[in-house]
Amino acid sequence: MILSVAGFIFFLFSELLNTGDLPVPTREDMPGSDICREEMFVGGALWGLINGGADLYYEYGFDRMVLQEIEWQGEEFRLELYRMESPVGAFGVFSVSVQGCEEGGPVRTGDCLNRFQYQLYSGNYYLSLINYSGSDKARDLSVEIGSVIASAAGDIRVELPGLFRQDMFKKVIDEVKVVKGILGLQNALPHLASLYEGLDDYIVWHLKLEEKEGQAEILLTVINDCRDIDASGKLALQLKDAGFAARSNNDRIVAVRSATGGKRDNDLLNLFLAGSGE
């Protein structure tokens, strides 16, 4: 009886450890630190933490998140490590959450550091590490903590569609944004939001380009909404009405809009499609 109870406790404990098997730092990684709070949020519990702010994560496919509040060398940090259901979800959250990143990435290419926050993604993970002071010391410590997670989580990049893997986009590849629903659109691409009304299940890959004449944008939409077999054709028409050059093929629509418009858009569309496999 005692053994079976012990066995059950061990089983339970193992389950808990497995559930908590996210690559978060420990005190050993941050000598002298205090992890004042450590909590995991699963399923709908994220709503309890950030209310409506959670909706964006659910839209991208939220699995779980560990929250840590850390005090280290007189600095305070709030660490949120999200595990999403897919690498696209993790990359998507990252892509719409970063701005004003220092060039180059302090830990590795593709992460983002600014005065108050360090962010990275790898595989299914998205990390937000906030410091409260914005000091140089907090920045340096953020990089140290970020390095621990980057090392544990690996460097697993999302596989971009062929359209964006072309050499011509190499320098701006980190600017690609991924949106999986209306909240992502409203946050990152509000000028496009009305075009996607009525669609339920889609992914938009979006890239802004700086040209001599002004900004151009290119987007690839993949529609998984099976309620409407001609959804891609309708969206292509709507995009054209909004001034894009657009082409649809089954469930995929590629669209381009430049500052010049007209023939230039069609030329760009043909150029981008030529080597893309779309």
Binding site: L16, E38, E39, M40, V42
Partner: peptide, 17 residues
């Protein structure tokens, strides 16, 4: 921090897992 973690596990938020 670890103690808090497991207390919270038991309390339910992570217990959801």
């Amino acid at each position: 921090g670890r103690r808090n973690f497991f207390r919270l596990l038991a309390a339910g938020s992570m217990g959801a897992g």
